[in-house]
Every structure is written in C-alpha cells, then in structure tokens.
Design a protein around this nucleic acid. Structure first.
Lengths: 169, 169
DNA sequence: ATTTTATGTCAGCCTTGTTGACTTTCCAAG
DNA sequence: CTTGGAAAGTCAACAAGGCTGACATAAAAT
C-alpha cells in the first residue's frame, strides 16, 4: 500500500503488478489446484464417491453437528445437490443425521467412525502434499501464500473462511 | 530448508507445519479458488459457454498456433471433451483451426478477433481480482504465494507451468 | 505397402450442478 | 388452536463437462 500510493511506478516497486506477473499467478492457481485435488480424487475413484462427497465429509468433520443449511451455505450448492450426496453418505453409514434437540426440524450432521476413517485417509493425503509444499517453500512463503489467497476471496467467502479458522463445533 | 534440517522442532520454527496450519491452507485453497473462478463464470453464464471454454480460450491465447494435442496435454482432458468445446468455439467464430504447413495432420489453433475480445473480457476480470489481491498483500507475499503453489504442483503440472512461464508462441 | 500419429466424430454413460414443484415437520404468531 | 412460514427432504427433468469405446480419415513414418 505504501508503494501504491507513492505516485507513479518508481523503479521496480510495482513490477509485481504487471499483466505478465498476474498471468503467471492465474496459471499457478490453475495448475496448483489441479494437483491439490488429485490425491483425494485418486482415493475416491473406484468408490461411488467424488469430490462433492469429499467436500461434505471435510466440512462435517471440521464442524461436527453442523446443520444442513450451514453446510449448504459453506459449499455454495443447492439443497438438492447436497441432499443427493448426503443421502449416499448416510445410507452407507459414513454420516449420521441427528434431529435437533431445540429445533427438531434441523438435522445435525456427524461423521461415524467409518466416516472419520475415510476423512482421515483423504485429509492425510491432502495434508501430505501441503506439508511438502510448505516445507519446501518455508514459513515466510507460507505466510505470503495465505495472505494472497485470503485477499483473493470475495467478502462472503472470506467471512466463511475466517469463521472456520478458529473455533471447532 | 535450513530450519527443516536443523534437527527437532526447536521453538516455533516448525509451527507452520502443524496439522492446524495445513488445514487452514487447504481451506484457503478451497475458498480462494471458488472466488478466483467466479468472475469469468459470471461473464460466461448466459452465453453457451462454461469454464471449459474459458480454459481453452486462455491457453490458445497464451500459445497461439498450439496444436490440439498440445492443448489436450495442458488441459488434461480427453480429445472428445476438448473437441466438443473446440467445435463450439470454431463454429461460433472465436477460434480458427489452421491445417499445419509442415505436418498437415496437425491443426494449429488461433483466436479470431472475436475470440480475442472474449479472452480480454475474461482475463480482465480475473486479472483485476488478482491485481487487487497482489496489491493488498504486497510483493513479498506474492513471491511466497507463487513459491507455495509451485511446490504444490506435481512434477508434470510444474513442467507444464514452467514451460508456459517464459516464451510465447 | 503398412503402420503409426493426429484429428475428428458418434453414441452412450457418469457426476454434479441447476430449477421447479411438492410434502412433511415443526416453530411461532395470531 | 389454527395458521403461516421456515427447515428439510424428495421427485422429475435437464445441462455442462468429464469419461470410454468404436470408428473414419489423412498424412507422416517406417
């Protein structure tokens, strides 16, 4: 910000904002995201599940007891899409749906032991890749990585991300 | 690397490798990527095109004259999937397919003026978001961002990314 | 002359997203 | 107590964009 308000691009101060640099960032996101999802995809292929199931499992694990509506908001899909996924996971005994105690219309979602098992397999694979990348790049790079990603989110996504950052259930 | 080989986790040196930190990174990727693709998606909705068309347009713009096989390798889809997309783009006059001069089996792909127009609209939107994020995070964060993303790619993706990094056609 | 490569195309399938319409359950306001 | 509306679930239909398999053609390579 200091350099952005300092007037015209003085020297190399703003060279990281050239279209060329931005294009590289865009392409890095494309290629990195593909690799990022590859490990879970490999684990899930062959099972009847896909990336949609992975996402549901991840966020139920992350926030046990979350309601269907909560999950809907985080995943950003329609209830019909999510319902198809949840029906499969519940039917296969990976997710348990408990009627709310205060509001009995709500369903609170929990992973079963079996569901936790798959979650662990999926997140172990994804964490291993992330850990290797973090280790290779070092702590300062990691800080920058997170800063840029966070700045890239639009307001609603950032709100959801940050609300997940700290507390558990 | 220096701290990784320095022995057991001394003090806070390796705190950035905790499962909690890795989970935050994983979720940051999820939310950031969703926002990252949101602007082009908005532009394309209503047209008959989707994200697949965007990717084809991006890489044809990036490497004019690229062959179908090249594009196949970069996008990582089957020729049938790509062909459906290319047929639409060629039919609508956004992409031109030229028979190769040396090897007449090859088709060299170029954007037409109309195709360049759409490319610009899409990449302007995506660059604007990326520029805002870069500016907010600053040049050092950007460097870290790129380092981590690159380290996250598997070998083949990194090769493709880097081969695009420098030269044009 | 034969094989391989690059491309295109048809048909059919799957996953995962979408809308729209409808029901059931239940809280809360009247 | 009745009724309105919210939360959840379900059915049907559809679209985008992946996939496989099979096949056709032209041209290069052997």
């Amino acid at each position: 910000m200091a350099q952005a308000t300092g007037g015209p691009a003085s020297g190399e101060t703003l060279l990281f904002l050239t279209d060329e640099q931005l294009r590289k960032g865009i392409e890095a996101m494309f290629f990195a995201y593909r690799s990022f999802t590859a490990d879970p995809d490999r684990i899930l292929e062959g099972m009847d599940y896909g990336r949609a199931h992975h996402r549901a499992i991840h966020f139920i694990h992350r926030s046990p007891g979350t309601t269907v509506n909560n999950l809907l908001a985080i995943l950003g899909v329609t209830k019909q899409s999510l319902n198809r996924v949840l029906r499969a996971l519940i039917g296969d005994g990976l997710v348990e749906s408990r009627v709310g105690r205060q509001d009995k219309r709500e369903r609170h979602l929990h992973l079963t032991a079996k569901g936790e098992g798959l979650e662990r397999a999926l997140s172990d694979a994804q964490r291993a890749r992330m850990r290797a990348a973090y280790r290779a790049a070092g702590p300062e790079a990691v800080q920058g990585f997170r800063q840029v990603l966070e700045a890239m989110m639009d307001a609603e996504a950032r709100r959801q991300y940050q609300s997940l950052k700290e507390g558990g259930a």
